[in-house]
């Protein structure tokens, strides 16, 4: 399946069932009634794992996004940016909130599975996630932040930055039995998704 998000083409393997979560009818019609509702970009399941995936493409706009990459809102006050930061958070907090709300939305979709047409599209997948993945500690649950952008500096490489964010998200996600990963176009795992066109296929 191919989706476009933040100007990047994402190709999910045929073995995956993937939805663009915030484009789903259920999200738009029901969950979005809740003020402040938000969710991750993709939910993807295979027989081996369920993945909650958020995409951030800051390429070319790194200057305005620098406040996002320092965990725990540390640079909200001091980073220079043209963005209005009211109500916004660093990526570690944003991803945690989005994952929590996505799970809440999926729970809602399960509750509506046979009663509301809006939940048809994701109801079955939501039920599968709850019954087969969340209820089974052996099944892998991924929370993945795909962070594109040239954030490396003189003193910290991009991988150090991604590692810091990963640690901070993991800490905030302790309430869920999951694996947290922050990746970019150089480090993503092609078994979860691939980016670019068919010719740019990363070897598995």
């Amino acid at each position: 399946m191919i989706f476009e998000e933040s100007r990047i083409r994402f190709r999910f393997p045929d073995t995956c069932k993937t939805i663009k979560f915030d484009d789903s009818v259920y999200y738009k019609k029901l969950f979005n009634m809740f003020p402040g509702a938000k969710g991750v970009d993709f939910v993807s399941v295979t027989s081996k794992f369920a993945a909650f995936i958020e995409i951030k493409n800051c390429l070319g706009d790194e200057g305005n996004c620098r406040w996002r990459i320092f965990p725990d809102d540390k640079k909200m006050e001091t980073s220079h940016t043209e963005v209005d930061l009211k109500g916004k958070h660093s990526l570690d907090i944003e991803i945690t909130e989005k994952t929590a709300m996505t799970l809440a939305a999926l729970a809602g979709a399960v509750s509506h599975k046979d009663t509301n047409q809006s939940s048809e599209e994701i109801g079955e997948m939501a039920e599968k996630i709850f019954l087969n993945y969340l209820a089974d500690p052996k099944k892998i649950k991924y929370v993945i932040l795909f962070l594109e952008g040239d954030f490396g500096s003189h003193t910290r490489s991009k991988k150090m930055i991604m590692s810091d964010l990963q640690k901070s998200i993991r800490k905030k996600m302790r309430w869920l039995n999951c694996k947290v990963s922050v990746v970019d176009s150089d480090t993503y795992d092609p078994r979860i998704f691939q980016i670019g066109d068919e010719n740019a296929k990363k070897s598995i």
Binding site: Y142, S157, K159, M160, M162, S163, Q166, K179, V180, S181, V183, T187, D189, R191, I192
Partner: peptide, 14 residues
């Protein structure tokens, strides 16, 4: 070594 540690960790995660 910092970058390799990140790579090793991704290897464990996936």
């Amino acid at each position: 070594e910092f970058d390799e540690m990140y790579d090793r960790e991704q290897g464990l995660i996936y």
